[in-house]
Amino acid sequence: MKKSVFMGALTLAGLAAGAAAAGTLDDVKARGKLNCGVTTGLVGFAAPNANGEWEGFDVAVCRAVAAAVLGDSTAVEFVPTTGKTRFTALASGEIDMLARNTTWTFSRDVDLKFEFTGVNYYDGQGFMVPKELGVSSAKELDGATVCIQTGTTTELNLADFFRANNISYEPVPIETNAEAQQQYLAGACDVYTTDASGLAATRATFDDPAAHVLLPEIISKEPLGPLVRHGDHEWGDVVRWSLNALIAAEELGITSANIGEMAAGTNNPEINRLLGTEGTLGEMLGLDAGWAKNAIMVGGNYGEVFAKNIGEDTPIGLARGLNAQWTNGGLLYAPPFR
């Protein structure tokens, strides 16, 4: 208490006194707000609009969790994090969860003591080159200069790929995607490499997108997903199953349009369990019976969120690809709600 009084006097602005270290779920409920770490800006995944509201594919995950826990998709405090600050912000408790196109890797999961609660986007690292270069495969890139974002998994993948194929490259280190676009367009590098979703988004902004090609090789697996701190399994379950609820909703045909009538009860027991008209799934998570319904009502099911933010009708124009339901040949496979 002493400490908090001291801080309060310093800020002159009233800082919240540190609550007792309860579980994150209780903290979030007590606070009435979810602190969700997002990127400081990535096309389609997270960006503030003109009114200062955050929008995007990762943002939708935050909003779904907030709706599931608090019943209000606007009860989210978006904390912009950079590639350097994201893990510290999560580890120190500044944020409750991180939904920042972060690749699920062994060392982040095990060594950094985080828990990835699922995958909301299966990405992979690709290459973009100007068409006039006449390259059709990444294996022909011997001696190329490559624009690469530092401090990311893409940097390591690139080194691995070139070493494995016994060809050389010259890296041009850059800090942000925006810088990369400028460098690439100015001809500072022959090749730009980053996640394929980022390449597609970048190419869409070019004056003449047709003058640039994405090479067929995808050289890495980049499962991007939300993560929470190690050791708080109740909270991890909430985030995991909120995401799964969106995915299962698409599989079960629940959309933002028909959820009203479906919530009244259907003949499909799994839909009923998911939407809380049967069983006690919400209670097991420590949430209301309508938790999943709230989460789905924010922006619709996974497919709707995808289509709205990054799908083929948006300027980014990503195909579902790996991110289709398992029934359509994709990798999305939500465990049963039982």
């Binding site: 400081t40 096309v43 995944f45 960006a47 503030p48 995007g56 950079t82 925006a178 400028q182």
Partner: peptide, 26 residues
């Protein structure tokens, strides 16, 4: 401060660029 994730005017510029409508504007 934009480097530590505060959205000052430089940080906001990159956030605005992340809007699909304005991606590619510098």
């Amino acid at each position: 401060v934009s480097i530590i994730g505060l959205l000052d005017v430089i940080g906001l510029a990159s956030a605005i660029r992340a809007d699909t409508a304005w991606n590619g504007i510098y």
